[in-house]
Amino acid sequence: IPCHVVMPRTAPQAKKDAVRGYGGIITQCEPSTSSREEVFARIEAETGADFVHPYNDPRVIAGQGTCSAELIEQVDNLDMVVAPIGGGGMISGTCLTLSNLAPDVKIYAAEPEQADDAARSFRAGHIIADDAPVTVADGLKVPLKERTWHFVSNHVTDILTASEDEIIEAMKLIWKRMKIVIEPSSAVPLATILKNKDVFANKRVGIIITGGNVDLDALPWMSGENT
């Protein structure tokens, strides 16, 4: 079955290589939500393919909920779980699982300051969507949608943000101390914990680490430029 994947032209080469390695057919778009949705619609019309939204889809949300299911199976007595948030697929899956299996666990979402439309939405009580934010955490640039907003507005305790420098330092810390290859988006939860130590002090905290799609020749601390 052919699989067409719409990706921003600025996506890390590691992500593009992985998609092609699995047989995906990439169509590039501009790094904005409006461009992605326009290209999605064109590819769907041209190919007749079934559209699977990358996060605003119940199947995707359910699949991402398995992360927190495995976490609470392996770690007892958690007080809090922190997961990254962009469009909200991962945090929605986290909410779906924990609200049913561990309802006493508080759920926090972590977001880049430079792409903080989810945090602003949370405080405003309705979706605020930025079209093309710029952040080193490229996996968290997309806005909330109606399905993910339902979970965020009903189950998330708070959305915390971190600066670009804080994200990069947290990423470096995980690389150095844990020897785990993670991408900047995966480092945002730890960055927000380190920034808000009073919130998490003396608590048993679980962190969802979500991916390791990085170009090893262009790590964010190599150039000194956060794009």
Rank of each mutant, 00 (worst) to 15 (best):
I1R: 06
P2Q: 09
C3G: 03
C3L: 14
H4K: 07
V5K: 02
V6Q: 06
T10A: 14
P12V: 03
Q13P: 00
Q13D: 11
V19E: 04
G24K: 04
I25A: 11
I26Y: 00
C29H: 03
R36W: 02
E37L: 04
V39K: 06
V39L: 11
V39N: 04
A41Q: 15
I43V: 15
A45R: 13
F51P: 00
H53R: 14
Y55M: 11
V60Y: 01
V60L: 03
I61A: 02
G63L: 09
Q64E: 15
Q64C: 10
E70Y: 05
I72Y: 08
Q74E: 13
L78M: 09
L78Y: 11
D79P: 06
I85Q: 01
G88I: 05
G89Y: 08
G89S: 10
I91D: 00
S92M: 06
G93T: 09
C95D: 05
C95L: 11
L98G: 02
N100D: 07
L101Q: 13
A102L: 08
D104N: 12
D104Y: 06
E111Q: 08
D116K: 09
D116V: 05
D116M: 05
A124P: 05
A124V: 12
H126S: 15
I128W: 04
I128P: 01
A129G: 04
D131A: 08
D131T: 11
P133F: 03
T135L: 07
V136W: 00
A137K: 05
D138Q: 06
P143F: 05
E146A: 14
H150N: 12
N154F: 08
T157F: 09
D158Q: 14
D158M: 14
A162F: 10
A162W: 00
E164K: 00
D165L: 12
D165P: 02
I167F: 04
M171C: 14
M171A: 07
K172A: 05
K176D: 15
V181Q: 01
I182L: 05
S185G: 11
A187S: 08
V188E: 04
L190M: 12
A191E: 03
K195P: 02
K197W: 10
K197Q: 15
V199M: 03
V199W: 02
R204Y: 08
G211T: 12
N213V: 02
D215R: 04
D217W: 01
L219F: 09
L219R: 03
S223W: 06
